[in-house]
Write a protein that binds this DNA or RNA. Sequence first.
DNA 1: CTGAAAGCGCTTACAG
DNA 2: CTGAAAGCGCTTACAG
Lengths: 340, 340
Amino acid sequence: MTESRGRAPRRPRPTMDDVAQVAGVSRGTVSRVLNGGHYVSAPALEAVQRAIRKTGYVVNQHARSLVTQRSDSAAFILAEPQDRLFEDPNFNILLRGCTQALAERDITLLLTIAGTQEDRKRIGRYVTAGHVDGALLVSDHAGSPLIDELHSRGLPVVACGRPLGHERDVSYVAADDRDGARQMATYLRSRGHRTIAIITGPLDTSGGVDRLAGYRDALGEPDPMLVVAGDYTRASGEAAMEQLLRQAPDLDAVFVSSDLMAAGAITTLHRAGKRVPADVAVGGFDDSAVATASVPRLTTVRQPLSRISTEMVRLLLTSIAGEQPSAVILQTELVVRESA
Amino acid sequence: MTESRGRAPRRPRPTMDDVAQVAGVSRGTVSRVLNGGHYVSAPALEAVQRAIRKTGYVVNQHARSLVTQRSDSAAFILAEPQDRLFEDPNFNILLRGCTQALAERDITLLLTIAGTQEDRKRIGRYVTAGHVDGALLVSDHAGSPLIDELHSRGLPVVACGRPLGHERDVSYVAADDRDGARQMATYLRSRGHRTIAIITGPLDTSGGVDRLAGYRDALGEPDPMLVVAGDYTRASGEAAMEQLLRQAPDLDAVFVSSDLMAAGAITTLHRAGKRVPADVAVGGFDDSAVATASVPRLTTVRQPLSRISTEMVRLLLTSIAGEQPSAVILQTELVVRESA
DNA sequence: CTGAAAGCGCTTACAG
DNA sequence: CTGAAAGCGCTTACAG
């Protein structure tokens, strides 16, 4: 009664020696059972399994990692203020895809949020102290010290999106942002729009510069009044659209570099009394959940996020296995709905 | 040139012995420097620090943890499908508060999402393998095996909200849900409303049952047609409101057990041509960011989430230090805005 | 197939 | 204040 209540007794955890003793075998045999059961006789195997159940043994990961030099876990590092993780459905998909792909290999994914400079330091220390075998780096900005530190420590890293300035140093997986943007811009022009503005992502990220480059490929060098940068948040989409409306009131289309910002832009347009797409056509990027939740539903560029996750995990595993860094670029696809 | 490109050389990590040799001291002295610098002479201290810098030494956490039996990290376990984390601003605040409070003690918080049964198993294994010193358990449902496993393994655990069925086993921090609900229900009646419905949270969580109990305290046993359960998501708020409108078309007020669900309920009311609060008054619970973003802004019950975070961390630390479990109940407060 | 032994990289009494 | 030594709990060749 008293035993079953209150704090669970902090009895010392059973070790492999305890299991070995109960099973009547040596510690080495217990270890072999734990690590695949090869070279173990059937009776020994069963005795060990029974002993494990009886003692409630759980391996001590620190001891194991100390000798194997592996932790069987990886870090998902989000180099953004925490709010972004919560606001942007892309991260959601990405995180889920990576978690699942790693779980299949029995690797635990630890989510860490490196929003502040201080966070980045703490996380840099954490991941380089051997806690993880590798890192998936999401949404890092050019000039961030994080990627430098991870790379210089020799930690296997895979970035999501082209890591500006580190294209040859670290592996990465990216959608073909430039081509996707080109498709969208070309489509908008083909629909008869003449004054096509762009809301870009941050210009220290590949999504920012590459989607702008694709727009330029299709439409040539734009009037500077038609270009405003956002930071991928909904609020920044609203604000950027306001600025565009002031700077270029005659625009008849806008290519927005993310669906979430596009949803924000639509809010601003409605508030200004503009109809979408009749007065202003709006194209997004991502094809995330926001695209179909938005009214009208977004014409957008689909990037294959779950495929991106599995490729990131694949590259991470090969990198942990000692391979050279490499890059994977995935196709994008125009998805036409109502907003443009 | 080739050296600076491609894969960083996987040189073996420097160990304490390397540092000791460079500094010309023993390994013990290096360890003392690392652990606070007590009982170390000034020259030795400086020599070691220089050697650490020169070698780029980083402690091997596994080796350290093996002897200290501590990992200096804790798990934040969200026992919900992943989407909930992203949708509900409460988790955001909670996570941030806990991360920060722990960072001050140099403890890293690992976020794990235990949405599926399989996740829960994997995470149970992970946290009981010594990876973390304790766990913060958020949004667990009655009957979930997770809390049993953690507790039976003797892992220090602090729950957010009253852990139904484990009130004496594990520490927890909760807002006074029942009193908050009582305040809201009393307020709604004082405003002249006569047919006051309730959208509850899941009835296998304390937030679900306790807020319903507070409503009962104030208004007595309700007509069953006035009670519908949601699951704290916005979508469930919309659906529950639709059901209420069908079951009790004459209702003139509704107490919704979370702000996010309340926002969903308002969407449904507007869609049905009802004005808020003129036709139907809506009261929320949480006072999260949703409350002020909603139109009209929500009258709601404030729960002190950041205070809850710091208390959770405090209890976790005392539990890790070996103290008996205890509970902290924090006051709630009615916040009147436009929706009721 | 199995056991004895070395060793992973630390911390921490213990002498000095 | 400092060094030598034991020991944390595992895995993995190495003999047998």
